[in-house]
């Protein structure tokens, strides 16, 4: 994939430098690296990056400035990809992000996931391409909350549904579960039927349909 131009917002200097180094190593370009929400908004206006990677919690109030800045940016620059990192997963934050502009090009991940560097960079790239990436922890909470039609799924189907909701492609799911892609496709068709969801052609719309269902 072509190098991404990335704006980075994280108030911890140690982590910000680390992240910049990490993304650089995978061939991407960090065009702006800032420590608070306001500077992020300014940096995006100046550099028009492909994707923004932002921490939820930043100065001055250390509450949810990063998230608010991300939502502001989404409203001002439709189509701007945003990946929000958080120390905790809160469904409320995930919901606010997914509701912005249809949830395309949105990512919401625990900061812990940075440690799995390959997967993290993969998530950044997928969000930049317009996909939706949701932390497995959020998906787990959503799955535990919803009942009804979900009880009709087999354990394996639930597993697949979780991975779909996280925003994984068929190929990625097949790799993770060590099965063939055809088997994954069969599972997904069965899940969509059981949940009364329309069969969706592309991965992206499928993710959103599943997330909408789970949040409903």
């Amino acid at each position: 994939m072509p190098p991404l131009r990335i704006a980075l917002a994280e108030d911890g200097v140690l982590l910000r430098e680390g992240l910049a180094g990490l993304l650089d190593r995978f061939g991407h370009e960090v065009v702006a690296s800032v420590g608070d929400g306001e500077s992020l908004v300014a940096a995006v206006a100046e550099h028009t990056p492909d994707i923004v990677v932002a921490d939820v919690r930043m100065p001055p109030a250390f509450t949810d400035e990063g998230l608010r800045a991300a939502l502001t940016l989404r409203a001002a620059h439709p189509g701007l990809a945003v990946l929000v990192l958080s120390q905790y997963v809160e469904q409320t934050y995930a919901a606010e992000l997914l509701d912005s502009d249809g949830g395309a090009g949105i990512g919401y991940l625990l900061k812990d996931r940075i440690g799995d560097v390959r997967e993290f960079v993969d998530a950044v790239e997928r969000v930049a391409e317009g996909h939706t990436v949701v932390d497995p922890e959020v998906v787990r909470q959503l799955l535990s909350r919803r009942r009804g039609p979900l009880s009709r799924l087999t354990p394996r189907e639930r597993e697949v549904l979780g991975l779909v909701a996280e925003g994984r492609s068929n190929a990625a799911i097949a790799r993770l579960l060590v099965v063939t892609e055809a088997a994954v496709a069969k599972h997904i068709a069965s899940i969509l039927t059981k949940l009364d969801l329309p069969p969706a052609g592309d991965d992206h719309r499928r993710v959103l349909a599943v997330l909408t269902f789970l949040r409903g």
Binding site: G12, L14, L15, G18, L19, R25, I114, D116, V117, R118
Partner: peptide, 11 residues
Amino acid sequence: RLVSLSMKLGL
């Protein structure tokens, strides 16, 4: 620091 450490180990 732990996130940073985990990232460095990953790298």
